[in-house]
C-alpha cells in the first residue's frame, strides 16, 4: 500500500507541475499575443525598463568589477608560478564572457529585479488592483505582465554585457595596474583568444535565455500568488530559488550545446 501511495503522490506532484507549467504558458501567451499598442505600451515599457534595468545597474556594475578583480587576483597567483601571467587576460575575459557574465547577472537579477516583480504583482493581486483592472475592461496581462516581461528580456542581456565589460576592466586593473603585467601583452593575447562568434554571441544567447526564464518565473509567481502577506513572502522566496536553479541547470545545458 505504501508503494501505491508513493506512486500516487508522485503522480499528483507531476500533474501539479504540468498544470503549473501550462498555466504559466497560458499567462505568457495571453500577455504576448495581445496586439501591441505603441502609443500606450511604450510609456509602460520605459517605466519598467527603469524599474527592472536601471535600478539593477548599481549591483550589477559593482559585482562585475569585484568579480573581475577577484578572478584576476586568483588567476595571477596561479599563472605566475608557471610564468604565464600574460594569459591572465584570456582567463578573465573568457570566464566572464562564457560563464560568469550571463550566469551571475541572471542570479543577481533574480534576487534584485525578479523578487521585486513577484512582490509587486503579488501585492497588486492581493490589493485587488488586478481585479480592478479587469473590472475597468483592461486586460491585466497586457497592462501589467507584458511590459514587465519585455523589460526583463531587454534589460538582462544589457546588464550581462555591462557586467562582463566592467569585469574585464576589473581584471585589467588588477593585472596591469597592480600586478604590472605588460599592457600590450595583456590586451593582445586577450584579443587573440576571444572570438566574436564563439564567445560574444554565445554570451548574448545565454543571457537572453536566462532573461526569459527568470522574468517568466518571477511574473508567474506574482500572478499566481495566494493573496495574503504570507503568500507574497513565499512567492518571493520561490521566485529566487526556482529561477536560480533554472539558470544553473540551463547554463549546464547551454554550455554543453555551445562548447561541448
Amino acid at each position: 500500500m505504501a508503494l501505491i501511495d508513493a506512486v500516487a503522490r508522485l503522480g499528483r506532484a507531476a500533474i501539479g507541475q504540468v498544470t503549473g507549467m501550462g498555466r504559466a504558458g497560458l499567462m505568457l501567451w495571453g500577455a504576448l499575443v495581445a496586439v501591441p499598442r505603441p502609443a500606450k505600451g511604450m510609456p509602460l515599457l520605459i517605466k519598467q525598463l527603469y524599474v527592472v534595468g536601471v535600478q539593477s545597474l548599481i549591483i550589477i556594475l559593482v559585482s562585475g568589477l569585484f568579480i573581475g578583480m577577484v578572478l584576476a587576483l586568483q588567476g595571477y597567483t596561479i599563472l605566475v608560478d608557471f610564468g604565464t601571467e600574460e594569459s591572465l587576460g584570456p582567463m578573465v575575459a573568457l570566464s566572464l564572457l562564457r560563464e560568469l557574465g550571463p550566469v551571475v547577472t541572471a542570479l543577481l537579477f533574480a534576487g534584485r529585479a525578479g523578487s521585486a516583480l513577484t512582490a509587486e504583482i503579488g501585492l497588486m493581486k492581493s490589493t485587488e488592483q488586478l481585479s480592478s483592472l479587469e473590472m475597468m475592461a483592461v486586460d491585466p496581462l497586457r497592462q501589467i505582465i507584458a511590459p514587465r516581461f519585455w523589460a526583463g528580456v531587454i534589460s538582462m542581456p544589457i546588464l550581462a554585457v555591462l557586467f562582463t565589460a566592467v569585469g574585464i576592466w576589473g581584471g585589467h586593473i588588477v593585472g596591469v595596474e597592480w600586478k604590472g603585467i605588460d599592457h600590450g601583452a595583456f590586451w593582445s593575447i586577450l584579443q587573440a583568444s576571444v572570438e566574436w562568434r564563439q564567445d560574444i554571441v554565445n554570451c548574448l544567447i545565454k543571457s537572453l535565455v536566462f532573461a526569459i526564464v527568470v522574468t517568466w518565473i518571477a511574473l508567474y509567481r506574482g500572478y499566481e500568488v495566494v493573496p495574503n502577506p504570507e503568500g507574497i513572502s513565499k512567492a518571493t522566496t520561490s521566485t529566487v530559488v526556482q529561477s536560480s536553479l533554472a539558470v544553473l541547470a540551463l547554463d549546464f545545458l547551454l554550455t554543453a550545446i555551445m562548447f561541448g
Binding site: 527603469y50 590586451w187 584579443q191 564567445d199 560574444i200
Partner: peptide, 24 residues
C-alpha cells in the same frame, strides 16, 4: 525616468561595442 532609460540603453550598446571591438 526617460533620461535614465536612455542612458541605460546607450551604456548597453557602448559596452557591447567595447566587447566586440576592444575584446574580440
Amino acid at each position: 525616468v526617460e533620461i535614465w532609460v536612455g542612458l541605460f540603453l546607450l551604456a548597453g550598446i557602448a559596452a557591447f561595442l567595447v566587447l566586440v571591438f576592444k575584446v574580440a
